[in-house]
Computed example of a mutant assay.
Amino acid sequence: MTNKPFNQLVVMRDRIKANRQIKDCDKLFYQGEFWAKVFDQQMGIGRQDESDYQQFKQIFRQSMDLSQLTGLQSKKLIEACLLFVKKLFIDENMDNYKKQTLSASVSFLKRKWSDVNWIITIKKSSTAQYQLFNQLKKYIDGECFKQVLSRVLDQLEQQDSTRYQEIARDVYFTCHVLHVIKCIEKNDDLKIFIHQDMLYLGLASTKQQVIALYQTLSSSVGKEYECYFAHFSRPLCLQGYTIKRDWQLKKICIEVPQHMLIKCAHMFQYGDFHNQIPKIRGALIHQPIEQIHSIYQRELFQIANYFVDADNYRSLKKLFYFAHLSLLKTIARKFDCTMGQAAKQLKKYQLNRYPLPKKDMIRSGHAKQVNWRAVYIEKVYVRF
């Protein structure tokens, strides 16, 4: 061990990059500086007394049942092991590559992809079943430490599967994609972003260079991930958006395609948008008229909020109008009247037709129904 534990982490990272094993991993967990980083970065609770980390020596020195730890002790150990994994096995720029929201991904594409010619897409295979520990164990020398790390990661998977899967994905991308890319010269023009379980590489290279990189990555990711490449003249589909490169204006265009309007109308039961046949929503006719109006309004606000970054945002007006026809049909069925009389009923209750909100109103949160960050609709659009 070096005098400074984070200097030792540098040495360990270098050994891992050279495909060599790292030793004395447990000694990191006896260092006050390491635990100070755990408490500060991972747990956000500030520096703790030395006794808080000295007690963990017994875990690594002898076979100790982790169930004997208190809830807080177990949490501290999990966070310490995750910091260990993050510092050694996850690329230092990973947080810059990851885009946590669809808006962040779209913004990155608009700013960085205007000169991209080719796209390599890497996504998790539907049959992929790998464990995080299996990716780490070959680099670690020390059976006792490996046993503890394995049990801690199993505990994390049971308690927080989402976080576990995210870390497993980041480790896999680091070892099988990012490490491979950095070993290949002349990839300074590479644009990387990660959204959910997919990694996108944008390149301005020649076709021959892209094919060579694609073949290398396909071999590296194996069966766990699927690898594709395509020219950017073919639009990129990203969770309901169509991403196009305008070759003349040298900019990226973000659009809502027609088929997404059709799918939105089908999902919310407005009717057949393609043939412009609105539908009665029979399940709503027993609700008060104000409630029916509010349901339609909330749904349309969700759609507008989800597609707020689209360059053709105003095309949503067609869907808004179609939804209004569905509302009129539903109200007409409720009162057993014509659609014209249904419109008068809405006017009687001072329930106006919904205008398409302006983009700046959505982004500032000043439009009606402030709390509609479209959690529901975003989950649905993961399928597309």
Rank of each mutant, 00 (worst) to 15 (best):
residue 229 F to E: 10
residue 195 H to Q: 08
residue 330 T to K: 15
residue 109 L to R: 00
residue 318 K to L: 08
residue 218 S to Y: 08
residue 276 Q to D: 09
residue 292 I to G: 05
residue 187 N to T: 09
residue 125 S to D: 12
residue 189 D to H: 15
residue 201 L to M: 12
residue 265 A to M: 03
residue 357 P to W: 03
residue 117 N to G: 09
residue 246 D to G: 07
residue 51 S to M: 06
residue 73 Q to P: 10
residue 108 F to T: 01
residue 251 K to C: 08
residue 210 V to C: 13
residue 205 S to I: 02
residue 29 F to H: 05
residue 241 Y to A: 02
residue 269 Q to K: 12
residue 233 S to N: 12
residue 134 N to A: 06
residue 196 Q to L: 14
residue 284 L to Q: 13
residue 58 Q to K: 14
residue 20 R to D: 06
residue 238 L to H: 03
residue 22 I to P: 02
residue 152 V to W: 03
residue 331 I to C: 01
residue 69 L to M: 02
residue 209 Q to N: 14
residue 135 Q to L: 15
residue 161 S to Y: 10
residue 79 E to T: 02
residue 382 V to H: 15
residue 91 D to K: 07
residue 346 L to T: 06
residue 103 S to M: 01
residue 333 R to A: 14
residue 257 P to W: 05
residue 89 F to T: 03
residue 320 F to K: 00
residue 48 Q to F: 01
residue 174 T to G: 02
residue 338 T to W: 07
residue 260 M to S: 08
residue 304 A to S: 14
residue 131 Q to S: 14
residue 203 L to R: 12
residue 322 F to R: 03
residue 242 T to K: 11
residue 81 C to E: 03
residue 280 I to K: 14
residue 184 I to Q: 15
residue 292 I to K: 08
residue 324 H to I: 00
residue 380 V to F: 14
residue 116 V to P: 02
residue 34 F to R: 04
residue 210 V to Q: 07
residue 285 I to S: 03
residue 184 I to W: 05
residue 189 D to Q: 13
residue 321 Y to A: 10
residue 206 T to W: 04
residue 191 K to A: 04
residue 351 L to W: 04
residue 230 A to D: 11
residue 364 S to F: 03
residue 315 S to N: 09
residue 78 I to L: 10
residue 3 N to D: 15
residue 218 S to D: 08
residue 101 T to A: 05
residue 127 T to F: 13
residue 378 E to T: 12
residue 378 E to W: 01
residue 85 V to Y: 01
residue 167 I to Q: 05
residue 239 Q to W: 07
residue 314 R to N: 08
residue 211 I to E: 14
residue 163 R to S: 11
residue 328 L to V: 05
residue 298 R to H: 14
residue 175 C to D: 13
residue 24 D to L: 07
residue 82 L to I: 08
residue 338 T to R: 09
